[in-house]
Amino acid sequence: MNRLSSIRIKAIVIKESRQVLRDPSSILIAFVLPAILLVLFAFGINMDARNVSIGIAMESSAPVAHRLVETFKATPYFRVDVATDRRDLFDKVTSGNLRGMVIIPQDFANLLSRGEQSPILVITDGSETNTANFVRNYAAGVLNVWKSLESLGNSAINKVPVELELRYWYNADLKSSNTLVPGSIAIIMAIVGTLLTSLVVAREWERGTMEALLSTPISPIELLIGKMVPYLILGFFSFVGAVLLAIFLFDVPFRGGTFALFVVGGAFLLSALGQGFLISTVTKNQFMSSMIALITAFLPAFLLSGFIFEIASMPFIIRQITRIIPARYLVTNLKTLFLVGDIWPVIIPNVIFLVVIAAIFFGLTIRKSPAVLELD
């Protein structure tokens, strides 16, 4: 009774595999749900600001002012609404139709012709802080481009002793999808992995088959291994499918290796499946299990994994809480594999944390399993 029996484990694996094939919900969770969520995340969450609506109050009719307006119109980042009076744009900014406005004053050309600085006022909608920062930064960039085109070499405002040259490693185009899509896979797999096993034990209780299992000589560990194997394989297929979608559908570069990908995915799936098993064992109710799994998998993973919000900027206590969130380690590993490559000093510590979390989940599941409780 104390020894693990491969025959009993194999029997449970076959039983559970047949259950998976008969139950379309597992297939939907493993393949359809990740595809839908990945499309929603990839297209719904986008940090790239393009076609931001701004207004330009062109109070100066000089040719140099017209050329400045044309420079704003030429950039793909702005959709420009031109007016001759700033008061015509105030209401549009207040109502949210415009995210900001640029005011070119009447004496703009005269000041430039005398070699003096001519201030240009940029007003942004501070209720959307990220967009306001985009408007400010992009407007400054457009002004620099315009100054270069105008060749104002004799103007004091253009005499800069140092030329700044920027290079962006790992994501040279600064495409937000290159970082958001790998993070989205981590969030999706947290949901999928937990949901896959959150119904397993609860289903046995609701269908009245748990008593039959308890009457057999199978041990809690054998039962857990037998039930886990089919869902681990299913989870791997789901994980690989999400990665392939990211590469071929969303054109996210993948610079890592297959072995590292499977190590990272396997460690995370063990923790996610263990969380689902624990929930299912404790609740013994499929509806309650699914609700708890969805809440405990999605919200912590979305808010505390570094997917959207930078962990380093969080308060100290919250940063410590993130250490017990498995998705945090998968987000870091996937971003590393997609954008950088097989950086094992980054990957290995995260994999170790995931394995430890998985061991804790499975240990609690075995402790709470019906067979152990009956022995107690």
Score class of each variant (00 low, 15 high):
residue 136 R to G: 10
residue 158 N to G: 05
residue 190 A to E: 06
residue 136 R to T: 14
residue 153 G to A: 09
residue 181 V to C: 03
residue 120 I to Y: 07
residue 106 Q to C: 05
residue 183 G to P: 00
residue 183 G to L: 04
residue 133 N to I: 08
residue 175 K to N: 12
residue 187 I to C: 03
residue 155 S to K: 09
residue 115 G to L: 01
residue 150 E to C: 01
residue 162 V to W: 11
residue 94 T to S: 05
residue 163 E to Q: 13
residue 161 P to L: 10
residue 96 G to Y: 12
residue 182 P to S: 10
residue 100 G to M: 06
residue 95 S to I: 06
residue 183 G to K: 09
residue 94 T to H: 04
residue 132 A to H: 08
residue 121 L to E: 07
residue 97 N to K: 09
residue 93 V to S: 06
residue 186 A to H: 05
residue 171 N to K: 14
residue 96 G to W: 04
residue 143 L to K: 00
residue 129 T to L: 14
residue 117 Q to A: 14
residue 179 T to M: 06
residue 190 A to L: 04
residue 128 E to W: 05
residue 192 V to L: 00
residue 162 V to P: 01
residue 145 V to K: 11
residue 168 Y to F: 12
residue 116 E to Y: 09
residue 126 G to S: 15
residue 121 L to A: 05
residue 114 R to Y: 05
residue 163 E to N: 08
residue 169 W to M: 08
residue 139 A to S: 15
residue 99 R to P: 02
residue 160 V to C: 02
residue 103 I to F: 07
residue 128 E to F: 03
residue 120 I to L: 11
residue 149 L to M: 04
residue 172 A to P: 04
residue 185 I to E: 00
residue 167 R to F: 07
residue 176 S to H: 12
residue 128 E to S: 05
residue 135 V to P: 00
residue 188 I to N: 06
residue 138 Y to W: 10
residue 104 I to Q: 14
residue 125 D to F: 01
residue 178 N to R: 05
residue 107 D to R: 11
residue 125 D to R: 00
residue 178 N to M: 01
residue 102 V to F: 08
residue 112 L to A: 05
residue 94 T to A: 06
residue 166 L to W: 15
residue 143 L to V: 04
residue 188 I to P: 00
residue 156 A to K: 06
residue 98 L to D: 10
residue 177 S to G: 03
residue 155 S to L: 13
residue 162 V to N: 08
residue 138 Y to I: 07
residue 143 L to P: 00
residue 138 Y to R: 11
residue 119 P to E: 09
residue 145 V to R: 11
residue 138 Y to L: 03
residue 141 G to R: 11
residue 97 N to E: 15
residue 134 F to I: 07
residue 174 L to Y: 13
residue 127 S to H: 09
residue 157 I to Y: 10
residue 164 L to V: 13
residue 152 L to N: 06
residue 118 S to C: 02
residue 139 A to P: 03
residue 150 E to G: 02
residue 138 Y to M: 02
residue 143 L to E: 01
residue 194 T to L: 01
residue 137 N to S: 14
residue 158 N to Y: 11
residue 108 F to E: 07
residue 115 G to C: 01
residue 125 D to S: 00
residue 185 I to T: 05
residue 174 L to G: 07
residue 189 M to P: 03
residue 127 S to F: 03
residue 122 V to T: 12
residue 148 S to N: 15
residue 124 T to I: 08
residue 146 W to C: 02
residue 138 Y to K: 10
residue 123 I to T: 12
residue 168 Y to Q: 10
